[in-house]
Design a protein around this nucleic acid. Structure first.
Lengths: 223, 223, 223, 223
DNA sequence: AATGAATGAGTTTTCATTCAT
DNA sequence: TATGAATGAAAACTCATTCAT
């Protein structure tokens, strides 16, 4: 379902590396990108396919060459977003070995760099707005993206607790509390200035991190 | 425009305390309540007025006796939500005089009791989802509800910093970081289980508060 | 599914015998009548709902108040046609007791009077044209209408053979041969002048009957 | 316009008997054959050119190299069918000199062998279904095919009446009555099992012939 | 006040037709 | 010649809004 997978050399392999062919391979991701921008802005139901097509620079009929319905386009948008989000997470995941505090910082800043400040952030608002209208898709997203992100945080927290850096606490609840400001930052870009309104994202993230670290540290910690 | 203002005793005051009269006065808020439930669930565009009418137990035409358009109904839903939210805040605001930490706890728990766990929480998701489609309304909400909530938090933080309970920090950023987990808790009720999925709301809020207090406290504080 | 069933007194029974109510009850059969005329003329796919609505004197949206899709309308057309055809057959069926030859004449002429020369004849062309596109409906029609008509003919033939009026023959094949000219007469009204072109339907039917009776009679019969 | 005229030896005559050349010449009739199959099955409007192209093993664009529009393709299908039907009739027509009864049998069986049981039978259903949508074509078909077939039957009947084999009757009406079972047999192959359902085509035709001959014979005939 | 049948403008969807390759 | 991606006009379908009752 990920149409962006067309590698540069695919033309060579399939034997017809024409400009037209290259265009066709790129089309689906051009279309989902245009759709993401509009769905993220207006929501699924309020977005007209005419506008998606116009934004992508094609005619309305062309959308139907690649997606069988508006709903199929929506699903592809989310799925492409998931693939990209997972790839971004993959990169951040690395095999970090330092202190848990530093790992935590990496996760927060890495999320911002590779998701929060990119167009992918729109997927967050979209999923939140439309989850009830597309329950299976929402569950899939939950399992494949959200739970995976939570697992990254969980391992950082557990490592910190294990090493004595962090005090013992309810890890699951803490994960949610840590994620919430990130999601709100992403959402705010496509909605109200609910948070991050008065400050730059970087300042906001720094404050989040600072509060967090102090909140997590063991009482007799490195204060 | 605010139909929720119809207090229970309005019938008594106007001298016609019949069931019919009370019913008539209650109509608008019955309609906005039904609309809030559906708008919060599906979003504005995806909600049909047929369904709103059916949920309120009236005919579609009746909606137009009270609201001149779907958009007017939407605005009334938000405005009713604002009035109720402000009334709830009013109550919490009181003239609390104890330690800033206790005030902070009161704000968080009071929000949960009077907004987060009530149907009003749906307004949060709705505003987030539709802000871009109704910018004036969103701004109005921002000014009247969000900024007011932020002011409450600001005064608590500043009082704590002033008294030495809390360390100096970027207050505006901290406000956002404190609000985010609350909003996500509200949103999660009408969307994905994005957070609060594995734990009870009360546990979640307790963890949020605990992390927060430790994060805020002055280094040499009452540890 | 037969919307024409609205009896004159239905208004009384349901308590609101208003003109509007009477109209609503009559609508579905007005719509299927308009649809039959156009489907029979142009076929299902080539008929536009706009035209059906215009012929019925309503707007396109009104069609959707009564039928959930073009296909549902088509099915209602056929089903209404079936109900009417069966009612017509019912009447002809009576308890005829005379010679088989006379019964046969009654069946042929009765078919013409109550189906062949009425708008119901359009259903025959329609079913023939669209059977492959609506296989379940076609099978249902086959079972409920065609097989029932065949049964009527079968009993007439078997009675005649039993009484010695008719010579023994392959009854099933004979039924088909007898029906074919009737169907072609119906079809011709909505298609080419394939048969019955040069002669009046009554003359055509008389010739069919005459050939048939002579073809069926026992060699030593009533000559 | 008649592409079926490409005889097998056309390649030889033009001096380029390569497979490619033969393929090229055969294209139009491959396309009309594919189109006949689908038009006969689904009707003109419900058939997509995509499907015609796919069935013929070419791309959609290729259709337009040979036919300027869907309607032109339809006309070619009918015209090819007419040419083939007339050629088939030509053969049967011969200069038969025996008894009229035998001539009649030859016409019925010959029709079955050379039209009824071949794909040409599809043209009958197609013309019946689409006559109203293509009136000029229908009239052309009527004049060139139907009337010619009727003329064959007419001459057989008149010969029989002239020789005393058959009794005097309304010849035009009789022609229609004789043709109807043939057409229905053809139609049934592409539609409902309206007739011929319970018996084999050959049995059906035999019964038709038998009834017919007895129905036609003079009272004092060769019994 | 309340109803709900009717409307028609607005959207999605289809598919014959075109045309650059 | 052949292809198939792209188009856009036309058709199906939806639903906010109106209005006679």
């Amino acid at each position: 379902m990920n149409h962006a997978a067309a590698l540069p050399e695919s033309g060579l392999l399939t034997g017809k590396p024409t400009a037209r062919r290259r265009r066709k391979d790129a089309r689906p991701s051009e279309l989902t990108a245009a759709a993401l921008a509009l769905f993220g802005d207006k929501g699924f139901a309020a977005t007209r396919l005419d506008d998606v097509a116009a934004r992508a620079g094609v005619s309305k009929g062309t959308l139907y060459l690649y997606f069988s319905s508006k709903e199929a386009l929506f699903k592809a948008v989310i799925e492409d977003g998931m693939v990209a989000a997972l790839a971004a997470a993959e990169e951040r995941l690395s095999t970090y070995q330092g202190p848990a505090v530093d790992l935590l910082r990496e996760l927060l800043l890495g999320w911002w760099e590779q998701i929060g400040r990119t167009p992918l952030a729109g997927v967050s608002k979209l999923i939140i707005s439309e989850a009830r209208n597309f329950p299976e898709l929402a569950q899939y997203y939950q399992e494949r993206v959200i739970n995976r992100g939570r697992a990254l945080l969980r391992s950082a927290l557990e490592r910190g607790i294990g090493s004595g850096e962090f005090r013992p606490l309810n890890v699951e609840a803490a994960i949610d509390v840590i994620i919430a400001p990130l999601l709100m930052l992403a959402i705010a870009r496509f909605s109200l200035r609910l948070c991050g309104q008065a400050v730059e994202p970087e300042t906001y993230l720094a404050t989040h991190f600072e509060l967090l670290v102090r909140g997590l540290q063991s009482p007799g910690g490195q204060s």
